[in-house]
Amino acid sequence: MKPMPPHLEIHDNRFAALVHPVSTLDVIAEGFTWTEGPVWFGDHHCLLFSDIPSQRIMRWSEATGLSVFRSDSGFNNGNTRDGQGRLVGCRHGARDVVRTEVDGSLSVLANSFQGKRLNSPNDVVVSSDGAVWFTDPTYGIISNFEGYRSTPEQLARNVFRLSADGTLSAVVSDFVQPNGLCFSPDERTLYIAESGSSHDTSVPAVIRQFAVEGDGLRDMGVFAEIDRGLPDGMRCDVMGNLWSSAADGVHCFDQKGVLLGKILVPQVVSNLCFGGRDGHRMFITATTCVYRVFVDVRGL
């Protein structure tokens, strides 16, 4: 086996089959305040990502480089695509979840629960049945850095499910600060990051796992623990491995929560996604930069 480059840290030999010994960790965009929410648009060969405090959604492509996709994003954070390919995002400013329609207009999908404003929707995924699942911590309202300082109206920091018919329900309510979330390949498991240690060091930096049962979730306990910093955004690959953000980079776990290895990044990582023309590039948002690295597995 060839020696691995310094940005790859192997904890299990299976990790060597997911990366490559001649890969490089490249900066493709820099000079931002706090990058988040990467999402790949394969049909346009471009990456969108948020620069939350600057209230911008940026666009990057190999062909045209960097440009502004939306200049007044309302402190947009997490992003995903729905089954029709439309952009779905979480805005801290308006405290809502919005969808960008084909004509460029915005449709508000959710902004309140039981007659009270949401906290600050953070990250979002869309399941194959059209339901929108999102986390609602208070990061966007505890200061004016990523939103507008405000008193929470919700009694909990919930994880929500918005059904295809528009019914909003709280499916988990016992997180200190729920953050990133993603499904397993078969959508039978939903992984959710607990990032409450950002403001309370007594909170464990863990990824929890839930069995998807109909419209609800059943708690299956802790899936994995992050040993550097805390978990934020994360994605699964087609093999079922979970790739999570952390303070020192991206941590890769197998389906049982065993740490396989790390992609070490010089800045604190907030999120990641798979993409590129061949599907074998991982895009990593990390503080002021966006990185790209080859991985030998595709994302979901």
Rank of each mutant, 00 (worst) to 15 (best):
P3Y: 04
L8N: 10
D12K: 04
R14M: 15
R14A: 15
A17Q: 14
V19W: 09
V22K: 15
T24V: 13
V27F: 05
I28V: 12
E30F: 10
F32L: 05
T35F: 03
G42T: 08
D43P: 01
H44P: 00
H45V: 06
L47P: 05
F49H: 04
D51V: 06
V68P: 01
F69Q: 07
R70S: 15
D72K: 05
S73C: 04
N77C: 08
G78H: 01
A94L: 14
D96A: 07
E101V: 13
L106G: 10
V108G: 01
F113Q: 06
N122C: 11
N122W: 10
D123G: 02
D129M: 00
T135A: 07
D136H: 00
P137G: 06
P137M: 04
G140N: 11
G140P: 08
I141C: 07
F145E: 15
P152A: 02
P152V: 10
V159F: 13
V159I: 14
R161G: 03
S169C: 15
S169P: 07
A170M: 14
V171K: 08
V171G: 04
V172F: 09
S173W: 07
D174A: 12
P178L: 13
G180F: 00
E187G: 07
A193V: 02
S202N: 12
G214I: 03
L217T: 08
A224V: 08
A224C: 03
A224K: 06
E225Q: 11
I226E: 05
G229V: 11
P231L: 05
M234G: 08
G240N: 07
N241D: 06
N241I: 02
S244N: 05
Q255S: 15
K256C: 15
I263E: 03
V265R: 07
Q267K: 12
L272I: 13
G275L: 02
G279T: 02
V290R: 04
